[in-house]
């Protein structure tokens, strides 16, 4: 199922990205190229193979529930393009997620 220009617009919208018409076409083409390449893998019979959720054969990596100091408020806000004394400032968003 090839990627359409509508798919690209949909994904861009979800990521709050804006593209020009040329860019949309370019990405549609590129995504299709990638998926065609990946489609070769679909030819392999994997019915007897467990789906892989992680490439490293590791499990149970934990940290103890101990508080350690992080960044100061000043440092946390330092690189923000817009801020108040204590908050990050973003364009107005209304409504819930």
């Amino acid at each position: 199922m090839p990627v359409t220009i509508e798919d690209v617009e949909h994904i861009a919208k979800l990521a709050r990205l804006e593209f020009s018409e040329e860019e949309k076409e370019k990405f549609t083409h590129q995504l299709n190229q990638i998926l065609t390449y990946m489609a070769q893998l679909n030819k392999i019979d994997t019915s007897a193979v467990e789906p892989l959720s992680h490439v490293i054969e590791l499990s149970n990596v934990f940290r103890p529930d101990v508080v350690k100091p992080g960044l100061t408020q000043e440092k946390a806000l330092k690189n923000a393009p817009a801020k108040t004394e204590k908050f990050f400032k973003v364009p107005k968003v209304i409504g819930e997620r």
Partner: peptide
């Protein structure tokens, strides 16, 4: 005491953007 994936405090009512 600490967050799910880092060691920051979960304490409620702290100065904004200080437990990060």
């Amino acid at each position: 005491q600490s967050k799910a994936f880092c060691s920051c405090s979960t304490k409620f009512g702290q100065d904004p953007n200080s437990n990060v």
